[in-house]
Design a protein around this nucleic acid. Structure first.
Length: 158
DNA sequence: GCCAACGTTGGC
DNA sequence: GCCAACGTTGGC
């Protein structure tokens, strides 16, 4: 078994938030249409990896919980569906362009860790999420960064 | 609603 | 291969 790795994945809570993941028990994390993110999903993200579930375009934005990758990359079915907003008419079933993974909830953080708080933590200064202009919907997180965010979410600020 | 940042597209 | 135009992301 490959070593467990750590990621941050974004979701818009108005569409699908961490509480929805807890309710459903499992979800297909789909709709990635960026090549850099696709390559990470396809080549690097593996079953058993741990995920910081980040609420983007949200009020407030931040990390809501921890998820686990329960199925590694497979063809994202939404790319073939003409009714789906993520439909890609140029992707064919013989050579699918986009992939999805499945996630399951591990734990909701005791306390939501908002973006300003992440920014304020010097231990997270290299977090990919905080780099200027970053828009990737899946990003690598180091084990130390992952632990740090969990720690922040386990108790009060400061 | 605004706008900065970034990716993609397409004319040349 | 360059680069302007355009679309999207996402915080504020």
């Amino acid at each position: 078994m490959p070593p467990q790795r750590f990621w941050l994945m974004k979701s818009e809570p108005e569409t699908f938030g961490f509480d929805d993941l807890v309710r459903d028990g499992r979800t297909m994390w789909d709709g990635v249409r960026n090549y850099q993110a696709r390559n990470l999903l396809r080549d690097e993200v593996g079953e058993g990896d741990r995920v910081l579930f980040y609420h983007s375009s949200a009020d407030p934005p931040g990390v809501a919980g921890v998820a686990e990758v329960v199925r590694a990359a497979y063809p994202d079915p939404t790319q073939f569906d003409p009714e789906d907003p993520h439909h890609d008419p140029e992707s064919g079933r013989a050579d699918p362009r986009w992939v999805a993974v499945d996630l399951a909830p591990v734990q909701k953080l005791k306390r939501f860790v908002g973006l300003p708080e992440l920014r304020a933590n010097p231990r997270l200064k290299d977090l990919a999420l905080l780099r200027r202009g970053n828009r990737l919907s899946v990003q690598p997180v180091t084990a130390a960064e992952f632990r740090e965010v969990l720690k922040m979410g386990d108790k009060g600020p400061g």
